[in-house]
Design a protein around this nucleic acid. Sequence first.
DNA 1: CTGAAAGCGCTAACAC
DNA 2: GTGTTAGCGCTTTCAG
Lengths: 337, 337
Amino acid sequence: MAVTLHDVARLAGVSIKTVSNVINDYPHIRPATREKVELAITELGYTPNLTARSLRSGRTGAIALAVPDLALAYFAELAAAVIAAAEASGLVVLVEQTGADPERERELLRSPRLKMTDGLIFSPLGLGQEDIAALEVPYPLVLLGERMFDGPSDHVTMQNVEAARAATEHLIAAGRRRIAVIGSHEGEVIGSAGLRLRGYREALEAHGIAYDESIIGPSMAWHRESGARAMRELLARGVGFDAVFALNDTLALGAMRALLEAGRRVPDDVAVIGFDNIDEAQYTVPSLSTVDPGRAWIAETAVATLLERIAHPQSDVPPRLLLADFSVVARESTHAA
Amino acid sequence: MAVTLHDVARLAGVSIKTVSNVINDYPHIRPATREKVELAITELGYTPNLTARSLRSGRTGAIALAVPDLALAYFAELAAAVIAAAEASGLVVLVEQTGADPERERELLRSPRLKMTDGLIFSPLGLGQEDIAALEVPYPLVLLGERMFDGPSDHVTMQNVEAARAATEHLIAAGRRRIAVIGSHEGEVIGSAGLRLRGYREALEAHGIAYDESIIGPSMAWHRESGARAMRELLARGVGFDAVFALNDTLALGAMRALLEAGRRVPDDVAVIGFDNIDEAQYTVPSLSTVDPGRAWIAETAVATLLERIAHPQSDVPPRLLLADFSVVARESTHAA
DNA sequence: CTGAAAGCGCTAACAC
DNA sequence: GTGTTAGCGCTTTCAG
């Protein structure tokens, strides 16, 4: 069924090697030969069998991207950016969803399905410090979005602590003092939740504001639904607060919804800031202030770093930690009252 | 570097074929042999080379999914559903973004990169009726989301016309008569915009309401941004309307934003309904009424249909058109005034 | 500048 | 039940 190099070679009256040379732009081919071959290629509609090429060359031209869930806006936008960056380098992207399940994340790392790709860009959510050994994998790996110290692989990540601190300070600068948090993960140190909470605490401390556990709203899931729920719980506690730092934008949108339902005005009664700068943050009512963690740069850098590791698998370059610049994006939800 | 069947065979003291049999659960193997082989496999940490297996078997275990842009919520949620459905069948998904560019969509269909997959689930946006010939491809193909008549491939799609008609009738039932549209594509017949506008017109006609071009807001892009812009243009025209049918949810969210900025209350002054039922529609303020076009069913059916075609490439089953059930989801944005 | 031939790791006839 | 062997389609020394 499929037309192969042999078919082309036969029609062009040359050897299979010559056809291969033409396809791979080997420099020293007589123009007449090249033309003959190209004619045969178009006549037969030949397209190279990439699987065979992969087997031979050891390269697939594909990379894998593993994210918790594409239905989450942040990861969808991240995936869009990664795919675009990969395409610019002639790579194709295989997307996996882990559901943020530590078990599935560990499984993914040893999945033979990865043999179909040249490397992996992995945004773990469930893995902890104790899983660092599992990251010792026999293929190029770039981690995203979380900062695991002393891991064996390159990390491209955002400055969670510093950006969270800046977000909190943005609220403090607007005159807020009772700043609630939505989306904390109790006891977490190394994940995004832990790091962002740390930034929050640092900001409080720097401004002489006491940390008050009673306005910390935990929520394992970072969905709109859970943001709304966590906010309702916070309101039900009856403790006062004049601002909310939601640990991501989606939580913030859910929290805003719950605040409005409860008759609290944003930003007049409660200022709200999120984290991620997802597209929709600018179109909500009120528009959502947030931190832009440098998503586009992260995607491009992750692909570039992975490509480098793929090109030099035995390189002695130690694991790098690449940090994106961030910025606070002030919008309506934190306008001065 | 990599450990192969030969290595395992040597360690286990059997032939390569026996190892292959064990891996592929070939029934007739002596338990003792199986055990020996399995021991060798774990000892060496052997994982099969999927590229080699693909070359030999002609199957890759991967499918491709092509969507316009993952940053668009509808397609992100669709991709999430497709990947989940594929995984349930042991398939892995390669995601491509076309940017809704007809040129890139045509190119994609003949891309040799597809040789790395067993088939394609394709959500075209730029292709028109004239491109039907381009859909005659030498691999299994399932189209999504648009209804091209008499194409050569299976289609899994939503009932655009009927669902749009139902959305419009929902507004009419709420007492609205001046129903604007956001997101039309002038002159389009076969795309989602054309079909949904047709449903809108059918609903008007059925209720004796005249079609009025002056309240039709065109917008090629279906982003929040463009929805807001189209709505501002509509408002600037100074024509009156008491409802808006946005041709998708994202447009609707942008339009709501523009309405609120202009001091129009939703739903009191203007009722708004969208299309797609993306997750966030239920969390906006006010929550967005919309049409659920059956996304989950579409994703599962697309994967199942593609798998069938992959399993029976020469089947005589003619191209099928599979239509998802839809439902109107009434929320705050269309509550009776 | 072009041809012949080996082999990437695996599966599937076909022997034994 | 298990081993031998021939390729899947391609790239790549190595000759010529």
